[in-house]
């Protein structure tokens, strides 16, 4: 498997403070890597470093040449009044392949329209994005992230704003996409993540990589992963390996 991204001893943060420390991570082709960790543990910071949005204060990052990123940002309050339609939003995911000074090509429009049809957005493609429901908006942003057929799809908390039905569909779509592209997903939802990802990394200032997708009690104890989410989780079909009673704090 070819290595797409390699991080070596990365320190990064904002305004001189370190949020993440000494991170080394390698993301290989066709991986489906889940990154979990507590709030404020540095999940989004790590993603920003990987995407090149935040310069690390020390360490090395190597990204395969010419790699295309698809990015689904954390669902914050997108500017509800900004004049941009659903279709324009999806099309903006094709800017990396568009020639400068030229409009989007006919194929770009067709690709965007096909994807919107698949995600049930074709009826509202001219609506302003700010007027959509949370679930519709998330679908529009997911379309924007994947319309360019990126080499790697980076998702920051993709399940935070979708309804339960669409959440299941979305994970099915991601599994399907994983045949063609690498996926890197940040989530606080440890229950769901284990049933879809191939590998897990746990980040709480420092990072620990766990090949395989089981969450072990070892991970919970040593690396202070969000235990409460696991003990209180109501999602079925979760297997915790070597889970001792009273073992997890």
């Amino acid at each position: 498997m070819e290595e797409l991204i390699k991080l070596e001893n990365i320190d990064a943060g904002y305004n001189g403070s370190k949020i993440i420390e000494n991170i080394s991570l390698s993301v290989k082709e066709n991986d489906f890597l889940g990154i979990i960790g507590p709030n404020g543990g540095g999940k989004s910071t790590l993603i920003k470093v990987i995407l090149g949005l935040l310069k690390p204060s020390s360490g090395n990052i190597t990204v395969k040449k010419g790699m295309k990123f698809g990015y689904l940002p954390q669902f914050t309050s997108a500017d509800k009044k900004f004049p941009i339609s659903v279709k324009e939003t999806v099309l903006s995911g094709l800017l990396s392949g568009k020639k400068l000074f030229r409009p989007f090509s006919k194929k770009d429009h067709e690709d965007a329209e096909d994807l919107m049809r698949k995600f049930d957005l074709d009826g509202i493609q001219d609506s302003p994005v700010g007027e959509l429901s949370g679930g519709q908006m998330q679908r529009a942003f997911l379309c924007r992230a994947m319309v360019s057929h990126p080499d790697i799809l980076v998702l920051d908390e993709p399940n935070s704003f979708v309804d339960k039905d669409f959440a299941r569909d979305m994970y099915q779509i991601l599994l399907e996409l994983n045949g063609r592209m690498t996926i890197l997903m940040v989530s606080h939802d440890t229950g769901v993540i284990t049933s879809y990802v191939k590998n897990i990394a746990c980040i709480n200032r420092t990072l620990h990589y766990h090949p395989g997708s089981d969450i072990t009690s070892d991970m919970l104890e040593k690396y202070t992963c969000p235990v409460e989410l696991i003990t209180h989780g109501s999602l079925p079909h979760r297997v915790l390996r070597s889970h001792k009673i009273g073992g997890a704090k």
Binding site: L53, F69, A78, I84, S92, L95, S96, S148
Partner: peptide, 22 residues
């Protein structure tokens, strides 16, 4: 006229535009 799509995208979501190499 020539940079409409780039400008529109940056104005809406600057970080996303950066990830697309704009």
């Amino acid at each position: 006229y020539f940079l409409f799509n780039e400008i529109h995208s940056i104005a809406f979501d600057e970080e996303f535009a950066k990830t697309q190499g704009v």
